[in-house]
Design a protein around this nucleic acid. Structure first.
Length: 422
RNA sequence: GUGACCUUAGUUUAGUGGUAAAACUCCACUCUGUGGAAGUGGUAUCGGGAGUUCGAUUCUCCUAGGUCACCCCA
């Protein structure tokens, strides 16, 4: 008996993605890619580790993400790195660092991969999560915003199996408009400070825009009458937003205006949007981030983008698949019998692979009974039985699992024969 | 970071202050030449640690993990 030892388990908030979910995710990303590529987007991959300063400057020192949700590490050389908590800042960094301004503008990129936040896990939220996102860099016109929204909308519609979701839309203005608005909002809320919930008392001091996010009933009436940012937008921001709405209308993309929608990160400007399920859970979102490039490099570069949280978007589909416990039946199962046949079995399987005939097998089993049992459990339509006799004769038995009839064919003719059958 | 609930075999669950049971799965054998079967066997120091007790899987505390909500966010 080996000594018992406690298994080292996975870290908090981490998840093993098992085969069925892996396949679902791969399919989703493939579809999403195809849609993005149709519209001229190209793939990009940025490192999972970035210098900490990229995020502290871009996202904002006083945001939760920077203050408490980053995975920090220090290299032996003393470099301070973090696991990327979001995707936009790295891509803007990559654009600037690789001189992509020399390419035809705008530069349109898509990405998919993991992001990390050190948070308490809960439903639809883990410490490592996957996003599929797109970014349009170097374009200020609202057609870019519409393009991003339209593509994400299409992905949610066509690749996720989500029945009903809604697109919520708002404009948070530029730096100037927002400054004015925030002033008004703060002044308004100060007047009602006594009747606010505890959270809102705090928000009033730390992050006034978030006041609009409060779900407490006691704050609802106050929220209802609060000044709306839309009334504080400057002319150019108003026009930008108006044009976006016109384009969305013309493209048949339903949305509704949500004056309470704000984004958490400092670098956002103008367009802000979110995709929300019936239950109110957001599984995607994004916005315009014209100030971002200037914050991290001093250069001006307008940009707009958005992303979809892969696990959230696939949750309903995964649950459905689980409840159906649908197992895809396989066509062909290969059975070997006896050492001579076993030794030659990889040769036969290679024949099948080259003929592009998918076949399962259980090479490590020896008894024909157990192999047949596995074949029928997997729902195989045909089994190929390859025993000592067949190995010597260069033949193989094809067994129809439904009718239990079988016939022997020459090994050379096997692939042609099978192709006709399936 | 705050709060609530949970943790017994691979899985889903029972159970008791005197060291555990079922179903399904998996593996092995019966059984190297023909399937969904059957039989037999195997798989748990009851998440980890400490305390109370003659004795703790059961009671208490701590810790870790899970689930959910808040904060925040995807």
């Amino acid at each position: 008996m080996p000594a018992k030892k406690e298994l080292v388990k996975k870290g908090k908030g981490m998840k093993d993605i098992l085969p069925e979910e892996c396949l679902l995710r791969e399919k989703f990303v493939d579809k999403a890619k195809a849609i993005a590529e149709f519209y001229g987007f190209e793939p990009i991959q940025t490192p999972y580790l970035e210098k900490v300063e990229l995020f502290t400057s871009a996202i904002g020192e006083s945001t939760d993400i920077v203050e408490k949700e980053m995975y920090n590490l220090k290299t032996k050389g003393g470099e301070k790195l973090v696991l990327r908590p979001e995707g936009t800042a790295p891509i803007v960094r990559a654009y600037l660092e690789n001189g992509m301004h020399t390419k035809p503008q705008p530069v349109m990129l898509y990405y998919s991969g993991s992001f990390f936040r050190y948070e308490r896990p809960q439903k639809g939220r883990r410490r490592e999560h996957q996003q599929f996102g797109i970014e349009v860099l170097g374009e200020e016109d609202s057609i870019a915003d519409a393009l991003v929204i339209r593509i994400l909308f299409a992905i949610l519609e066509e690749a996720t199996g989500i029945k009903s979701f809604s697109l919520r839309l708002n404009s948070v203005g530029d730096k100037e408009c927002r400054k004015n608005y925030q002033k008004e909002l703060t002044a308004y809320y100060r007047k009602h400070a006594k009747s606010l919930c505890k959270n809102c008392e705090r928000r009033l001091k730390t992050n006034p825009l978030r006041l609009l996010d409060c779900k407490e009933e006691e704050c609802a009436p106050i929220k209802e009458d609060a000044p709306q940012i839309i009334d504080y937008l400057c002319n150019s921001c108003t026009n930008h937003f108006k044009e976006l709405l016109e384009i969305l209308d013309a493209s048949g993309t339903p949305y509704y205006l949500d004056h309470h929608l704000v984004r958490g990160l400092d670098y956002y400007s103008r367009t802000a949007f979110e995709f929300v399920s019936e239950e109110g859970l957001a599984f995607g979102g994004g916005g315009r981030y014209d100030p971002l490039a200037e914050i991290i490099s001093g250069k001006e570069l307008p940009g707009v983008g958005g992303s979809i949280g892969v696990e959230r978007a696939l949750e309903t589909k995964l649950e459905k698949q689980r409840s159906e416990s649908a197992q895809k039946p396989i066509k062909v199962f290969f059975i070997q019998l006896g050492t001579g046949a076993k030794h030659k079995s990889l040769y036969v399987l290679e024949m099948l692979r080259k003929a592009k005939i998918p076949a399962k097998h259980s090479l490590s089993k020896n008894s024909i009974k157990s192999q047949l049992a596995i074949a029928s459990k997997l729902g195989a339509s045909y089994t190929l039985i390859f025993g000592q006799k067949e190995a010597l004769e260069n033949s193989i038995i094809i067994r129809d699992m439904e009718t239990a009839s079988q016939e022997t064919v020459n090994l050379e003719k096997l692939t042609d024969y099978l192709k006709k059958k399936i």
